[in-house]
Every structure is written in C-alpha cells, then in structure tokens.
Amino acid sequence: MNLESPLDIDLLDEKFSLEGELGFIEMEGELPFISVSNKYAQADICLYGAHVMSFTPHNTFELLWMSPSSFSEEGKAIRGGIPVCFPWFGPHNSDPQLPQHGFGRLMYWEVIETRAEANGETLIRFQLNASEATKAYWPHDFSAELVITVGAALKLILNVTNTSTEAFEYSCALHSYFNLSGIENIHIEGLQGTTYYNQLTKANAIQEEANLTISEPVTRHYLDTQTPVIIADPVFRRRIQVQKAGSQVTTVWNPGQEACLNMQDMPDDGYETFVCVEATNAFKHSITLAPGESHQTATIIGLEV
C-alpha cells in the first residue's frame, strides 16, 4: 500500500531548499529525502512517511539507528530512525490484515514549509490529509502535520486535527530507534515506580529497579507517564535524553535475538545495537477528537547537557 509519488524533486528544491542548509535528494534505487546541515547538526528525512532517518549533532556521532537491511521502496516500511505510527499503534484492533502501525509511514507526506530559524535551527513542516487512499484503510477525514526542528536537539511534533463532522479515535507513536554501543552496556533511567504493560507476558507490573537494563526481549508500555528518560551508554560516553509532551505512554522495545532471526529487514544481530524509546498514545490513552479538535504528540531527543 502506498500513495503514488506526487513528488517532483526539482520543483521541491526550487520552492523549499535553503541555500547551504537544506536540500532535496533523489538517489537511484532509493526513496527521496531531505538533507539538513546547520550549525548544530546534520539530519536526513525521507519524504516517504516523513521519516527521520539520521540525526547527528556536531559534538557526537549518529544518535539514531537504521537497519542496514531496511527496505527502501514504496509499499514497505523503513526499519529504524523515527517511523510515524498513525492512525493506529501496533496491529489494527479489528483487522490484522491492515498494515502494522497504520498507514502514515507508508505514504508520502507533503512538504508545506521549510524555514531557517533566527537561532540557527532548521524547521520542516509536513502534512498528510485524508484522501481516497487513506479512506481505503480508515474512514475518517483528518489533517496530520509533522513539524520537525533540527537543532542541538531534534524535536518532532505530530499534530492531528479532526476535519470531519463526527468524533474519531486514533492511536500513534513516534517510534524512535536509538544507536547504542551494545544493548548489554546501557541502562534507561526515569521509569522507576511506573506501572507498565508487558506485551510479552500480557500482564501489568511496576518497575521496582532504579534503572532498566535489557538482557532479553522487551516490549513494555509504561502507562500514565510524561517523565523524561535517559539512555545512559558509558561505552559511547554519552547520555541521550528523550523528552516528550502530549503522550501518556512510553514504549521501550528491543526484539532480542530470536525475533531478529525472523525479520527480513533487520540483521540477525541487529538487536544488539539499538533500543526503541517511544512517545506513544495508545491503549487507554488513545486520543478521541471531536470535530475541529486537535492533539499534539511531541518528542525531543538530544544529549543531556
């Protein structure tokens, strides 16, 4: 499933490029993307899915993890970076044949604005509106905007508006993959005392430990929390801070070895060098919008200062 590409890279470059800071690139056999380089960082953002694929502040190396086996073709999701899960998170609640994590990551988003900010940051605004293609999978009228700001930190804001005449419910996530020295080296701070749903055991529990370490497959959805977390990686000598707003669920995921063996778009040992920490709205925290209402889900990713 995908939208037929509406893109003319030359026209986009003419209208939205920022000299010396932002340009549009289309490489043979690859999906088109935006390349950003400013005084703070470099970033690559694929137009397919409005998908951040790379974020590298100048004082460190790549913060995001991309699978070297990821698909890079229409109709298939990109593995790694920051997929936008919308308008549902995980499998569809009534039709398992519909795409995992919704259709937002399987469609081209329209670039509607680029801007060089006075402080040196770079802003890109994407939009995905209801269409015949989206209504084949979800019957509602909506407008979704994703605003990405590249600076010393990377900020994403997903703003969903109900443009229909009836209320609807959706779930979403900013499904961030983080680049690690090794899963056994890191710990995650900020979740102690938080109730989580363990998707692997289908049970709720409370994290008693001060820090989460990962030595086996993990799919935890921490509930009723907006607390920032830290991914501490002493081997890489950095602490990645993951902040969020408008999200009541923090998802932590690493598939472990056995699941990786069954993923075509991930190396067998891929699980060793990433963890996902996601700003999520799902389960009892799915979002209901009345006609005309909007909701923002945001995440801010950067090094702890």
Results as ranks from 00 to 15, higher is better:
236 F>N: 14
85 C>H: 01
159 N>F: 05
181 S>L: 12
245 A>C: 00
198 N>G: 02
167 A>M: 04
62 E>H: 09
162 N>D: 09
95 D>Q: 07
188 I>V: 11
108 Y>D: 03
197 Y>E: 06
132 E>G: 12
87 P>E: 02
200 L>I: 15
133 A>E: 15
6 P>M: 03
294 S>F: 00
135 K>F: 01
191 L>E: 01
35 S>G: 14
163 T>V: 07
179 N>S: 11
174 L>M: 10
8 D>F: 05
15 K>D: 01
142 F>Q: 13
272 E>Q: 15
4 E>P: 03
72 S>W: 02
3 L>G: 01
128 L>V: 06
231 I>K: 08
162 N>I: 00
8 D>I: 02
129 N>H: 04
104 G>H: 02
135 K>Q: 09
301 I>D: 15
74 E>I: 10
293 E>H: 13
118 A>L: 10
148 I>Y: 15
16 F>E: 06
289 L>C: 08
133 A>G: 10
272 E>H: 09
249 V>C: 05
92 H>E: 05
12 L>A: 05
201 T>A: 12
180 L>T: 05
181 S>I: 09
145 E>F: 11
286 S>T: 12
29 G>R: 00
137 Y>T: 06
209 E>H: 07
40 Y>Q: 06
124 I>E: 11
161 T>W: 00
293 E>M: 14
252 V>A: 06
23 G>D: 04
69 S>N: 11
133 A>H: 11
265 D>N: 07
305 V>S: 14
8 D>A: 01
249 V>N: 05
192 Q>H: 12
173 A>V: 09
296 Q>V: 02
21 E>F: 07
141 D>V: 01
169 E>S: 14
74 E>T: 14
176 S>R: 00
212 L>T: 08
28 E>T: 08
47 L>H: 05
111 V>E: 11
236 F>I: 03
272 E>K: 15
